[in-house]
Amino acid sequence: MKTDSLGIVEARNKLGVLVSRAVHGHQPTTISRSEDERAVLISEEEYEELLRLREEREIGRVREAIASRERGEMRMHRYESAAQLYSDYGLPVPGDRS
């Protein structure tokens, strides 16, 4: 699928047309603010489909992890608290302002 690419100023000036193309023509547009800051304008329908596919992929991973554990191929680690889990992964605890 071909994706048009526009700078942010040009995209702002054509936003109505770009939204119509995304919704009715299923044509995504890449919008660039800089080389490192890019986003893609897609229809809500396509966005919801991406979320559904992501959820299905994650469910598959969880199911495979459970099956792996049941086959004895994976050792489970039990955490006594969410803070311990976050700490183990080097992540800040949600809501912790320290």
Results as ranks from 00 to 15, higher is better:
Ala65Gln: 12
Val17Asp: 14
Gly95Lys: 05
Ser98Ala: 08
Ser5Ala: 13
Val93Tyr: 09
Asp96Ile: 05
Glu44Gly: 13
Ile8Leu: 09
Glu46Tyr: 07
Val17Gln: 15
Lys14Ala: 08
Pro92Gln: 03
Met1Arg: 14
Ala82Tyr: 03
Glu80Leu: 02
Met76Ser: 01
Glu35Ile: 02
Arg12Tyr: 09
His77Val: 12
Glu44Trp: 13
Thr29Lys: 03
Glu55Pro: 00
Gln27Arg: 14
Glu55Gln: 11
Gly90Trp: 07
Ala83Asn: 06
Leu85Thr: 01
Ala82Lys: 04
His24Ser: 09
Asp4Met: 08
Leu41Ala: 06
Arg33Leu: 13
Glu48Met: 13
Ser20Cys: 09
Asp36Lys: 12
Ile66Tyr: 08
Glu46Cys: 05
Met76His: 02
Glu55Arg: 12
Arg63Val: 13
Asp96Glu: 12
Glu37His: 09
Ser87Arg: 04
Pro28Ser: 13
Leu91Ala: 03
Arg57Leu: 06
Ala83His: 06
Met1Val: 14
Gly7Met: 01
Tyr89His: 03
Ala82Ser: 06
Ala65Thr: 07
Glu35Ser: 11
Val62Phe: 10
Leu50Val: 03
Arg54Lys: 15
Glu49Asp: 15
Ala82Trp: 04
Ile66Cys: 01
Ala39Leu: 14
Thr3Val: 14
Arg69Leu: 14
Pro92Trp: 09
Met74Phe: 06
Ile31Tyr: 07
Ser32Gln: 11
Ile8Glu: 07
Arg69Trp: 15
Val19Trp: 09
Glu56Trp: 01
Leu53Ala: 00
Glu56Val: 01
Ile8Asn: 07
Val17Phe: 10
Glu64Pro: 01
Val23Gly: 04
Leu50Ser: 03
Glu37Pro: 04
Asp4Gly: 07
Tyr86Met: 13
Leu91Glu: 01
Arg57Asp: 03
Leu18Glu: 05
Glu73Ser: 11
Glu48Leu: 13
Asn13Tyr: 10
Glu49Tyr: 14
Gly25Asp: 09
Gly90Asp: 04
Val62Ala: 05
Arg75Ile: 10
Ser32Pro: 02
Ser68Gly: 08
Pro94Leu: 05
